[in-house]
Design a protein around this nucleic acid. Structure first.
Length: 253
DNA sequence: AACCATGACGAAGTCGTGGA
DNA sequence: TCCACGACTTCGTCATGGTT
Protein backbone atom coordinates (compact mmCIF):
# COMPACT_ATOMS: atom_id res chain seq x y z
CA UNK A 1 0.00 0.00 0.00
CA UNK A 2 1.54 3.22 -1.12
CA UNK A 3 1.34 6.10 1.26
CA UNK A 4 1.53 9.78 0.44
CA UNK A 5 4.02 11.43 2.71
CA UNK A 6 4.73 14.67 0.91
CA UNK A 7 3.36 18.07 1.74
CA UNK A 8 0.95 18.11 -1.19
CA UNK A 9 -1.90 15.66 -0.75
CA UNK A 10 -3.58 14.60 -3.95
CA UNK A 11 -7.05 13.36 -4.63
CA UNK A 12 -8.03 11.92 -7.99
CA UNK A 13 -6.14 10.14 -10.71
CA UNK A 14 -2.92 10.89 -12.53
CA UNK A 15 -1.99 8.38 -15.19
CA UNK A 16 -2.50 4.90 -13.76
CA UNK A 17 -2.28 5.89 -10.13
CA UNK A 18 -5.22 6.87 -8.00
CA UNK A 19 -4.73 9.13 -5.02
CA UNK A 20 -7.32 9.18 -2.31
CA UNK A 21 -7.92 9.85 1.34
CA UNK A 22 -8.94 7.08 3.71
CA UNK A 23 -9.28 6.92 7.46
CA UNK A 24 -5.62 6.00 7.55
CA UNK A 25 -4.55 9.11 5.75
CA UNK A 26 -3.60 9.83 2.20
CA UNK A 27 -2.96 6.77 0.07
CA UNK A 28 -2.12 5.94 -3.50
CA UNK A 29 -2.91 2.79 -5.43
CA UNK A 30 -3.15 1.41 -8.94
CA UNK A 31 -6.14 2.53 -10.90
CA UNK A 32 -8.91 -0.03 -10.79
CA UNK A 33 -12.37 -0.50 -12.12
CA UNK A 34 -14.59 -2.81 -14.12
CA UNK A 35 -13.71 -3.61 -17.69
CA UNK A 36 -16.06 -2.78 -20.54
CA UNK A 37 -16.83 -6.35 -21.58
CA UNK A 38 -17.85 -7.24 -18.05
CA UNK A 39 -19.97 -4.13 -17.66
CA UNK A 40 -21.96 -5.02 -20.76
CA UNK A 41 -22.42 -8.73 -20.11
CA UNK A 42 -21.96 -9.77 -16.50
CA UNK A 43 -25.36 -10.45 -14.87
CA UNK A 44 -23.98 -8.88 -11.72
CA UNK A 45 -23.91 -5.56 -13.53
CA UNK A 46 -27.56 -5.69 -14.53
CA UNK A 47 -28.48 -2.99 -12.00
CA UNK A 48 -25.62 -0.82 -13.17
CA UNK A 49 -26.65 -1.22 -16.80
CA UNK A 50 -30.19 -0.22 -15.90
CA UNK A 51 -28.92 2.92 -14.23
CA UNK A 52 -26.73 3.68 -17.19
CA UNK A 53 -29.68 3.27 -19.57
CA UNK A 54 -31.77 5.73 -17.61
CA UNK A 55 -28.90 8.13 -17.31
CA UNK A 56 -28.30 7.91 -21.05
CA UNK A 57 -31.95 8.72 -21.61
CA UNK A 58 -31.65 11.77 -19.35
CA UNK A 59 -28.62 12.90 -21.34
CA UNK A 60 -30.39 12.53 -24.66
CA UNK A 61 -33.56 14.25 -23.47
CA UNK A 62 -31.47 17.11 -22.10
CA UNK A 63 -29.71 17.49 -25.41
CA UNK A 64 -33.00 17.46 -27.29
CA UNK A 65 -34.40 20.24 -25.13
CA UNK A 66 -31.16 22.17 -25.25
CA UNK A 67 -30.98 21.94 -29.03
CA UNK A 68 -34.60 22.95 -29.35
CA UNK A 69 -34.17 26.25 -27.56
CA UNK A 70 -30.63 26.92 -28.76
CA UNK A 71 -31.53 30.21 -30.54
CA UNK A 72 -33.01 31.61 -27.35
CA UNK A 73 -30.22 30.41 -25.10
CA UNK A 74 -27.99 32.96 -26.79
CA UNK A 75 -25.45 33.26 -24.00
CA UNK A 76 -28.07 33.15 -21.27
CA UNK A 77 -26.48 29.99 -19.98
CA UNK A 78 -23.71 29.22 -17.58
CA UNK A 79 -21.02 26.59 -18.12
CA UNK A 80 -22.70 24.04 -15.88
CA UNK A 81 -26.13 24.39 -17.38
CA UNK A 82 -26.15 20.98 -19.05
CA UNK A 83 -25.04 19.29 -15.86
CA UNK A 84 -27.89 20.83 -13.94
CA UNK A 85 -30.34 20.02 -16.70
CA UNK A 86 -29.29 16.36 -16.76
CA UNK A 87 -29.67 16.27 -12.99
CA UNK A 88 -33.22 17.64 -13.23
CA UNK A 89 -33.97 15.28 -16.09
CA UNK A 90 -32.93 12.35 -13.90
CA UNK A 91 -35.55 13.43 -11.37
CA UNK A 92 -38.10 13.54 -14.18
CA UNK A 93 -37.20 9.99 -15.18
CA UNK A 94 -37.20 8.73 -11.60
CA UNK A 95 -40.73 10.04 -11.23
CA UNK A 96 -41.90 7.53 -13.86
CA UNK A 97 -44.12 5.15 -11.92
CA UNK A 98 -45.19 3.07 -14.91
CA UNK A 99 -42.05 1.65 -16.51
CA UNK A 100 -39.82 -1.08 -15.17
CA UNK A 101 -36.41 -0.37 -13.71
CA UNK A 102 -34.03 0.64 -16.47
CA UNK A 103 -36.87 1.49 -18.81
CA UNK A 104 -38.12 4.60 -17.05
CA UNK A 105 -38.24 7.62 -19.40
CA UNK A 106 -39.13 11.27 -19.60
CA UNK A 107 -42.49 10.81 -21.32
CA UNK A 108 -43.83 8.56 -18.57
CA UNK A 109 -42.05 10.68 -15.97
CA UNK A 110 -42.91 14.09 -14.59
CA UNK A 111 -41.64 16.69 -17.03
CA UNK A 112 -43.40 19.26 -14.88
CA UNK A 113 -40.45 18.93 -12.48
CA UNK A 114 -38.44 20.95 -15.00
CA UNK A 115 -40.67 23.94 -14.36
CA UNK A 116 -38.66 26.77 -12.86
CA UNK A 117 -35.36 25.57 -14.33
CA UNK A 118 -32.94 28.48 -14.75
CA UNK A 119 -30.65 28.25 -17.76
CA UNK A 120 -28.28 30.76 -16.24
CA UNK A 121 -27.31 29.58 -12.78
CA UNK A 122 -25.63 32.93 -12.16
CA UNK A 123 -28.75 34.95 -12.91
CA UNK A 124 -31.98 33.41 -11.80
CA UNK A 125 -35.09 34.84 -13.42
CA UNK A 126 -36.91 34.98 -10.08
CA UNK A 127 -34.18 37.23 -8.71
CA UNK A 128 -34.00 39.41 -11.83
CA UNK A 129 -37.54 40.10 -12.96
CA UNK A 130 -39.86 41.22 -10.18
CA UNK A 131 -42.48 42.59 -12.55
CA UNK A 132 -45.40 40.21 -12.28
CA UNK A 133 -46.34 38.04 -15.20
CA UNK A 134 -48.52 35.11 -16.07
CA UNK A 135 -47.77 32.22 -18.40
CA UNK A 136 -50.26 30.16 -20.35
CA UNK A 137 -50.01 27.14 -22.62
CA UNK A 138 -53.08 26.58 -24.76
CA UNK A 139 -52.65 23.13 -26.25
CA UNK A 140 -55.80 23.40 -28.33
CA UNK A 141 -54.64 26.46 -30.26
CA UNK A 142 -50.91 25.85 -30.00
CA UNK A 143 -50.30 29.26 -28.47
CA UNK A 144 -47.81 29.67 -25.62
CA UNK A 145 -47.98 33.09 -24.06
CA UNK A 146 -46.37 35.35 -21.46
CA UNK A 147 -48.23 38.38 -20.12
CA UNK A 148 -46.20 40.89 -18.16
CA UNK A 149 -48.38 43.33 -16.26
CA UNK A 150 -47.70 47.04 -16.07
CA UNK A 151 -44.41 47.69 -14.22
CA UNK A 152 -41.63 50.11 -13.27
CA UNK A 153 -38.24 49.04 -14.69
CA UNK A 154 -36.24 50.83 -12.06
CA UNK A 155 -37.75 49.07 -9.08
CA UNK A 156 -38.90 45.79 -10.60
CA UNK A 157 -35.98 44.75 -12.78
CA UNK A 158 -32.58 43.98 -11.28
CA UNK A 159 -30.18 45.16 -13.97
CA UNK A 160 -26.37 45.11 -14.05
CA UNK A 161 -24.41 48.35 -14.10
CA UNK A 162 -24.27 49.97 -17.49
CA UNK A 163 -27.74 48.86 -18.56
CA UNK A 164 -29.56 51.44 -20.66
CA UNK A 165 -32.19 49.13 -22.13
CA UNK A 166 -33.49 45.61 -21.86
CA UNK A 167 -35.90 43.35 -23.65
CA UNK A 168 -38.04 40.44 -22.61
CA UNK A 169 -37.56 37.25 -24.59
CA UNK A 170 -39.75 34.21 -24.84
CA UNK A 171 -40.15 31.02 -26.81
CA UNK A 172 -42.63 28.24 -27.14
CA UNK A 173 -41.37 24.82 -28.17
CA UNK A 174 -42.89 21.46 -28.93
CA UNK A 175 -40.36 18.68 -28.37
CA UNK A 176 -40.55 15.15 -29.75
CA UNK A 177 -38.15 13.32 -27.42
CA UNK A 178 -38.50 10.02 -29.25
CA UNK A 179 -37.45 11.36 -32.65
CA UNK A 180 -35.33 14.16 -31.22
CA UNK A 181 -37.10 16.79 -33.31
CA UNK A 182 -38.69 20.04 -32.25
CA UNK A 183 -40.76 22.99 -33.31
CA UNK A 184 -39.66 26.35 -31.92
CA UNK A 185 -41.23 29.78 -32.13
CA UNK A 186 -39.69 32.74 -30.36
CA UNK A 187 -40.68 36.29 -29.66
CA UNK A 188 -39.30 39.30 -27.86
CA UNK A 189 -40.42 42.71 -26.69
CA UNK A 190 -39.11 45.96 -28.10
CA UNK A 191 -36.06 47.46 -26.37
CA UNK A 192 -37.35 49.03 -23.17
CA UNK A 193 -35.52 51.94 -21.64
CA UNK A 194 -34.26 51.24 -18.11
CA UNK A 195 -35.72 54.09 -16.06
CA UNK A 196 -38.33 54.81 -13.43
CA UNK A 197 -41.40 55.53 -15.52
CA UNK A 198 -44.33 53.18 -15.69
CA UNK A 199 -44.53 50.70 -18.58
CA UNK A 200 -47.49 49.28 -20.41
CA UNK A 201 -48.12 45.53 -20.11
CA UNK A 202 -46.09 43.31 -22.46
CA UNK A 203 -47.49 40.34 -24.34
CA UNK A 204 -45.17 37.70 -25.78
CA UNK A 205 -47.18 35.27 -27.84
CA UNK A 206 -45.69 32.19 -29.46
CA UNK A 207 -47.88 30.32 -31.92
CA UNK A 208 -46.21 27.01 -32.75
CA UNK A 209 -48.69 26.46 -35.55
CA UNK A 210 -49.82 23.06 -34.30
CA UNK A 211 -53.29 22.62 -32.90
CA UNK A 212 -54.03 19.82 -30.45
CA UNK A 213 -50.40 18.70 -30.27
CA UNK A 214 -49.84 15.50 -28.32
CA UNK A 215 -46.20 16.21 -27.51
CA UNK A 216 -44.71 18.02 -24.51
CA UNK A 217 -44.84 21.82 -24.77
CA UNK A 218 -42.40 24.14 -23.05
CA UNK A 219 -42.62 27.88 -22.48
CA UNK A 220 -39.43 29.77 -21.66
CA UNK A 221 -39.20 33.38 -20.55
CA UNK A 222 -36.21 35.59 -19.96
CA UNK A 223 -34.58 38.98 -20.14
CA UNK A 224 -31.65 40.42 -22.08
CA UNK A 225 -29.73 43.46 -20.89
CA UNK A 226 -28.51 45.99 -23.44
CA UNK A 227 -26.39 49.09 -23.66
CA UNK A 228 -27.23 51.68 -26.25
CA UNK A 229 -24.32 53.54 -27.78
CA UNK A 230 -24.95 56.02 -30.59
CA UNK A 231 -28.24 54.44 -31.42
CA UNK A 232 -26.98 50.87 -31.56
CA UNK A 233 -27.78 48.20 -28.96
CA UNK A 234 -24.97 46.08 -27.60
CA UNK A 235 -25.25 43.00 -25.41
CA UNK A 236 -24.12 43.83 -21.91
CA UNK A 237 -21.30 41.85 -20.27
CA UNK A 238 -21.53 39.19 -22.94
CA UNK A 239 -24.89 38.13 -21.56
CA UNK A 240 -23.58 37.16 -18.12
CA UNK A 241 -26.58 38.70 -16.36
CA UNK A 242 -29.23 37.65 -18.81
CA UNK A 243 -31.79 35.34 -17.26
CA UNK A 244 -33.82 32.61 -18.92
CA UNK A 245 -36.15 30.22 -17.20
CA UNK A 246 -38.43 27.36 -18.13
CA UNK A 247 -41.58 28.88 -16.70
CA UNK A 248 -44.23 26.44 -17.83
CA UNK A 249 -44.41 22.82 -18.98
CA UNK A 250 -47.36 20.99 -20.42
CA UNK A 251 -46.56 17.28 -20.46
CA UNK A 252 -48.67 16.19 -23.36
CA UNK A 253 -51.17 13.44 -23.85
C1' DA B 1 -10.72 -15.93 5.26
C1' DA B 2 -13.92 -12.60 5.97
C1' DC B 3 -14.90 -8.03 6.20
C1' DC B 4 -14.66 -2.90 5.51
C1' DA B 5 -14.05 1.56 3.25
C1' DT B 6 -13.56 3.77 -0.91
C1' DG B 7 -13.05 5.13 -5.59
C1' DA B 8 -13.48 3.86 -10.60
C1' DC B 9 -16.42 2.71 -14.20
C1' DG B 10 -20.11 3.17 -17.52
C1' DA B 11 -23.80 5.55 -19.95
C1' DA B 12 -24.42 11.08 -23.24
C1' DG B 13 -23.46 15.59 -23.67
C1' DT B 14 -21.06 20.14 -23.34
C1' DC B 15 -17.71 23.30 -21.95
C1' DG B 16 -13.13 24.70 -20.31
C1' DT B 17 -8.31 23.97 -20.39
C1' DG B 18 -3.89 22.93 -22.02
C1' DG B 19 -0.78 21.25 -25.45
C1' DA B 20 0.68 21.09 -30.17
C1' DT C 1 -6.39 27.66 -34.00
C1' DC C 2 -7.59 23.23 -33.39
C1' DC C 3 -7.97 19.00 -31.06
C1' DA C 4 -7.82 15.89 -27.15
C1' DC C 5 -8.96 15.21 -22.73
C1' DG C 6 -10.97 16.12 -18.07
C1' DA C 7 -14.71 17.71 -15.25
C1' DC C 8 -19.37 17.29 -14.18
C1' DT C 9 -24.06 15.24 -13.84
C1' DT C 10 -26.29 9.68 -11.26
C1' DC C 11 -25.70 5.48 -8.93
C1' DG C 12 -25.04 0.33 -8.36
C1' DT C 13 -21.36 -2.80 -8.37
C1' DC C 14 -16.96 -4.55 -7.51
C1' DA C 15 -11.74 -4.33 -7.40
C1' DT C 16 -8.46 -2.87 -4.34
C1' DG C 17 -5.87 -3.13 -0.31
C1' DG C 18 -6.16 -2.68 4.24
C1' DT C 19 -7.69 -4.76 9.01
C1' DT C 20 -9.55 -8.24 12.15
Amino acid sequence: MARQSGIIKLKGTIGDITFYKSKDGYLARQKGGVDKERFHNDPKFKRTRENAAEFARAGKASKALCTAIRPVLNKTQDSRMISRLVKSMMQVIKADQVSDRGLRNVLDGELVLLQGFDFNGNARLSATVYASYTSVIDRATGILEINVTSFFPDSQIVAPRGTTHFRFISAGVEVDFENETFNLVQSSSAEISFDNSVREPVVLSNDIGVEESTKPLFLVFGIEFLQQVNGTFYALNNGAYNALSLVLVDTGV
